[in-house]
């Protein structure tokens, strides 16, 4: 393996580590309407859209594991969801006519809604907490919008990390 490629993996690891640190500490100071954005999910979507390879699956699993380790409940669901997110984005990668920050923002917002609906179902609805309107309007939708908005910062970061692995001409500047 070339040194340059090793450095690329190390850089990816460092970026994920920093995002995880930010997600569990400082991001709580930037709460908007009582919610925080999911930076790791956003990075999985951006990375997968840019990279479009199996590396994105590994990236998704790594980010999901981090969310699970730092999270409150049993390890597994975030890993699975992040992996599926990466897989979905890889499949869409070739079909997208345009791959830029705004497409990524839209993807993050939509995937965030689906992701949180699944979390809500498994951790709340199945246990008798069925306050769907509260979950939807106070957590899921604000969280999805916020995650979508911060993607404007995550996309260039992931682009810097994963561009080397992107198909030539597939990723536009913005």
């Amino acid at each position: 393996m070339q040194t340059k490629q090793v450095m690329r993996y190390v850089l990816t690891g460092v970026v994920v580590f920093l995002l995880a640190l930010f997600q569990t500490t400082l991001i709580h100071s930037f709460k908007l309407f009582g919610v925080i954005p999911n930076l790791l999910l956003s990075s999985v979507v951006c990375y997968s859209l840019i990279c479009g390879e199996n590396k994105a699956m590994v990236f998704g699993i790594a980010c999901g594991l981090i969310l699970d380790f730092y999270g409150a409940r049993a390890v597994g669901i975030n890993t699975l969801l992040c992996m599926l997110t990466a897989l979905g984005c890889i499949l869409l990668h070739d079909g997208l006519f345009s791959n830029n920050a705004f497409v990524a923002m839209l993807f993050v917002a939509v995937i965030s809604v689906i992701y949180d609906l699944i979390i809500f179902f498994f951790y709340f609805v199945l246990w008798g907490q069925t306050d769907v309107l509260y979950a939807l309007f106070r957590i899921i939708l604000p969280g999805a919008i916020y995650s979508g908005l911060v993607t404007i910062f995550i996309y260039p970061l992931m682009r810097a990390v994963a561009l080397e692995w992107a198909a030539p001409g597939h990723v536009k500047r913005w």
Binding site: T24, G34, Y70, G71, A72, D116, Y123
Partner: peptide, 14 residues
């Protein structure tokens, strides 16, 4: 307290 839950659903800290 050194860290908080990374999501919006639970109220757990480290």
């Amino acid at each position: 307290v050194i860290a908080k839950e990374p999501g919006n659903w639970f109220h757990v800290f480290t």
